[in-house]
């Protein structure tokens, strides 16, 4: 396609000017990414050089004013709440997609799909607010204080469910109709077709959706900030309050200076690394998929 364009359309002078303008503007888009990484590094570097990476794992606690920088409780908090919500949202999201594609009558499927899209459109601060005024008091009745790992997992599950459901549905739609017709011809039941044929064929798409959801969960700030209690500790049970890396930045950035501020930029870098790993994983899946088809 591009080859065709390049060979057939001979450039004139105005084209050359346009091309350079476009290149300049596109380059500034690329530069923004570089700038983000550079500025995170610049702000974090003095501290990293002075105390090294290891202190962020090995210090006794997170008291940046006293030079103690242990990020591990927050890291565990982020990982646990992400893991919990992905584990819950995966069956719910994929189940929703199966419902839309294979179980629901056409009208119900249309309404349900619109509902999932609406769910995807609710902003995170509204989810957080709802969690704070509705879920947290409910959990508080079962086991105080209410702001807890459980509340965080519940809210994040609702937030990433639409991402997983919509990507799952898109990948179900890509399963060749012949597979399903073939399964029907063999007399395989509806659930048999879904579990053995459709889910297998759509595997890579489902995985990409899960990765997208994981990225969204690990980077979410406002909702977890509002329902998780923000106590710096590794949660030992579902009812313990805790703090995530993202919430830590949002809470302390307002008054942090010097090394404390630098430590927050280190946690920003950590988040960037996590996202880069997820993007690379998603790309790897795409590659495997294009080889196999």
């Amino acid at each position: 396609m591009t080859l065709l364009k390049a060979k057939i359309l001979s450039p004139s002078q105005s084209d050359a000017i346009l091309l350079w303008i476009l290149r300049g503007l596109a380059l500034s888009t690329g530069i923004i990414v570089v700038l983000i990484v550079v500025f995170l590094l610049l702000e974090a570097w003095p501290l990293l050089q002075r105390v090294g990476w290891w202190r962020f794992v090995s210090d006794r606690s997170w008291h940046p004013a006293e030079g103690l920088y242990n990020l591990m409780p927050m890291l565990w908090g982020s990982l646990l709440v992400t893991l919990g919500s992905v584990l819950l949202a995966a069956p719910l999201g994929i189940g929703s997609a199966i419902f839309c594609q294979y179980y629901a009558p056409p009208l119900v499927a249309r309404v349900y799909r619109r509902l999932i899209e609406l769910l995807a459109g609710i902003p995170s601060v509204v989810y957080g607010f709802w969690g704070l005024v509705v879920l947290v008091p409910l959990i508080n009745q079962v086991h105080p204080p209410g702001t807890s790992l459980l509340a965080g997992i519940a809210i994040l599950t609702l937030m990433i469910l639409p991402t997983i459901a919509l990507t799952a549905e898109a990948s179900f739609a890509e399963v060749p109709a012949e597979y399903i017709q073939g399964a029907a011809a063999l007399g395989i039941s509806r659930w048999g077709t879904i579990s053995k044929v459709v889910l297998t064929a759509a595997k890579s798409g489902l995985l990409t959706g899960l990765i997208l959801g994981t990225g969204r969960a690990i980077g979410e700030t406002m909702a977890v900030l509002m329902v998780c209690g923000n106590v710096v500790q590794t949660p030992a049970s579902l009812f313990d309050p805790f703090r995530t890396l993202t919430a830590n930045i949002a809470l302390e950035m307002a008054y942090a200076t010097g090394n404390h501020r630098a430590a927050l930029f280190v946690s920003g870098l950590l988040l960037m690394v996590a996202i880069a790993i997820l993007v690379a994983a998603a790309e790897g899946i795409e590659k495997v998929k294009s080889f196999s088809s």
Partner: peptide
Amino acid sequence: GVPSIVFGLF
């Protein structure tokens, strides 16, 4: 994919 809080830091 960059989390919004990281955009905030930047």
